[in-house]
Each structure stands twice: as structure tokens, then as C-alpha cells.
Simulated assay, not measured.
Amino acid sequence: MYSSKISGLGYYVPENVVTNEDLSKVMDTNDEWITERTGIKERRHILPGDGNSTSVMGVKAAKIAIERAGLTKDDIDLIVFATLSPDMYFPGGGVEVQEMMDMKTIPALDIRNQCSGFVYGISVADQFVKTGMYRHVLLIGSENHSGGLDMTTRGRGVSVIFGDGAGAAVISRNETGKGGILSTHLHSEGKHKNELALQGPSTRYWVPEIMQDDPQDDIPYYPYMNGQFVFKHAVVRFSEVIAEGLQANDLSVDDINMLIPHQANLRIAQFIQKKFGLDDNRVYNNIQKYGNTTAASIPIALTEAWETGKINSGDLVVLAAFGSGFTWGSAIIRWV
């Protein structure tokens, strides 16, 4: 068995900045209301005609990650693409990345685990590298939320939260055999699947319902979130899966150098930080300027933390996510 490590990181966000004040012009909301509930001040949205899409942003982030890993596209053995917002219903974004980057006929695997997609993707990539099947796996988390949000007062509880962007990591064989990705821990609880969901368009609410002259008002074409219910479950599951990862590696909270939680809501992250007694230098949040970018949130935050020197060789880095499904997970990494 080999061990794996993160050998390269990159991210991309659209240039178009949407502030809370901008949103107040199209729905009944304001900066104070959004900031108090979410901690978000601004987010990025794709603009029509700017050339971006979920897959295009993923490619932009991937190219940076591959270059920083000291590799070329021809060194990549597998693409793992995590998103809830693919360019097409099918096929998924992984094959689009393979085509856009003119890669060899390597396999492409798509993951549909929403907010925990990147952590699930790390687990998948880690296993492929550990078994020796692949040496370098390109993992991408990318989301284009803005085109599918209800940008009216009716949808404000969800629409003010989400932003667009992409992050990528190259997971490589750790030749030193020391450190790297120590373990990953994954869970799900499907009985709560409807508490945070987009039920249509889908095979439940397919083309005939969409195309009829008198569309049914009760078909849920926009995301739904039971905010308080999700919040209460998130803080519990975050805590559990972080503790699980530490225990599995005979580590304690004192060993954590950097916790990067999925950027769902700043209030959730602050609750977890307080519960574990972590100071501000040991937790990284950037939801204030990007909003919730779902599968992209952890790799964007991880890349920023690394770029700014907040993560260094030998540091214990903990990633944790919770989201729709419900699904949640953590990854424990000794940085190399």
C-alpha cells in the first residue's frame, strides 16, 4: 500500500462580484439581514457571455493545480469531478474536462455529493493512489449556482447564500511514505434528503411538466432548504466527524494546525471553532467574499490558506463538510 498527498492546488472564481447591496435591488433583503444570518458580504456570479461554465471554471482551476504539482496534463491518470451543477444533465463534467484539456483517454468519474463532494472526492482519489492503481489523480470541485437560483424575495433564504467558483487538487503518490492523507471518514443519512434539495427538473418532473402551457406551481424547480433544520444537524455532524478523524489517528484537537470547514454558513464554522476551542489562526473561512460554493468551497479555501502561508509542511490539516443528502465527511492530512 502506498500513501497519497496533495501535490498541487488551484482555484478560479468569476470576476463579477455580487454584493449584498446588489441583491437588495432585486429582492427584499439588506446587508444586515444577510450578514447576521450567514456572514456573507459578497459572492461571485457568472455573467452571460463571459465564457464560464461549471466545466470551464474547473479546467481553469485544474491547470493551476497541475502546474503547481510540477506536472503536465499527460501525467494525470484519473479525473474526479464533484459538482451539483454540471453543464449538462448528462454526461458529467469529468469528460468535458478531459476533452477541454486535450487529455489522453483516461477515466473520468463524477461525484454527486453536493457540499461534501470534495471530501468524498479526496477519499476516492486517496484509495486509487493507495492501491497503486493510479499515481496522479486530478480532483475538481466546481459549481455554477447563479443560473439556477430564484433571485426574488421568495427565494432569498437560499439565493443570498450561494456563489460560483471552482477549486482543484492533484492527489499524488507520496513517495516519502510519511504524512500525506492520513484518513477520510464518510457518512450519509438519506431520511433527511428533502430538507436540502432541488427536486426538479429531474425524472420526477421531466420534460412534459416543464413544457406544458400551464406549468404546475408546486413543481420545485428551485433549491429548497430547511435552514434551521440543516443548521442544527450540521453542527452536530461537523463535530462528530472531526472527532472521528482525530480519534482514528490518535490525535487531539491540540494537534490541529488548520481546520478548513466547508463554507456553508459562517455561523456554523464559528460554532464549531468555539466548541473545539480553536483560535482564529487555526480556522480558515472565506465565505464572507465567495458565499457557499458547495463542492468548490473547500478547495478554494484550502488553496487560499496555502497561498497565504497558513499551511506549511508538517501541519495537521483537517477538512470537514456537511450538506445535502444528508452527507458529511472529514479528511485528516499531515501536510507534505
Results as ranks from 00 to 15, higher is better:
M1R: 12
S4G: 09
K5Q: 13
K5S: 10
S7D: 15
T19L: 00
T19K: 03
S24V: 07
K25C: 00
V26D: 02
D28W: 03
T29K: 04
T35C: 01
E36S: 08
T38M: 06
K41M: 13
E42C: 14
E42Q: 14
R43K: 12
R44D: 12
H45W: 15
I46C: 14
I46M: 12
L47I: 14
P48W: 15
G49Y: 11
G51A: 14
S53L: 08
T54M: 04
M57F: 07
A62N: 06
A62S: 13
A69G: 13
G70I: 08
T72E: 15
D74K: 15
D75W: 08
I76P: 01
L78W: 08
F81R: 04
S85P: 01
S85K: 07
S85T: 15
P86Q: 10
P86M: 11
G93M: 14
E96M: 11
Q98T: 07
E99A: 15
M101Q: 04
M101V: 05
M103V: 05
K104L: 09
I106A: 11
A108W: 01
Q114S: 12
C115A: 11
F118P: 00
A125R: 07
A125D: 08
Q127N: 08
F128G: 00
F128V: 03
M133F: 05
L138W: 02
G141C: 10
G141V: 14
E143H: 08
N144K: 12
H145F: 11
G147L: 07
M151S: 02
M151G: 00
T152A: 07
R156T: 01
R156K: 10
S159H: 04
I161Y: 03
I161N: 10
G163V: 06
G163T: 09
G167K: 00
V170Q: 15
T176H: 05
T176S: 12
K178T: 07
G179E: 02
L182F: 06
H185K: 11
S188W: 04
G190K: 07
H192R: 14
L198T: 08
Q199N: 10
Q199E: 07
G200T: 05
G200V: 05
T203G: 10
W206C: 12
V207K: 11
M211Y: 12
Q212M: 15
Q212D: 11
D213Q: 11
D214T: 14
D214P: 01
I219G: 06
P220W: 04
P223R: 07
N226R: 15
Q228T: 08
V235F: 03
R237A: 08
S239Q: 13
S239T: 15
V241H: 13
L246F: 12
L246Q: 06
A248W: 14
N249R: 12
D254Y: 05
D255M: 02
I256C: 09
I256R: 03
N257V: 01
I260A: 00
P261F: 02
Q263F: 02
F271V: 09
K275M: 03
L278G: 04
D279V: 01
N281I: 00
N281H: 07
V283N: 05
K289P: 00
K289I: 09
G291Q: 13
A295C: 05
A296G: 00
S297G: 10
S297E: 07
I298A: 06
L302I: 02
L302F: 14
E304C: 00
W306E: 04
I311R: 02
S313Y: 10
G314F: 08
L316A: 02
F322H: 10
F322C: 06
F322W: 09
S324D: 14
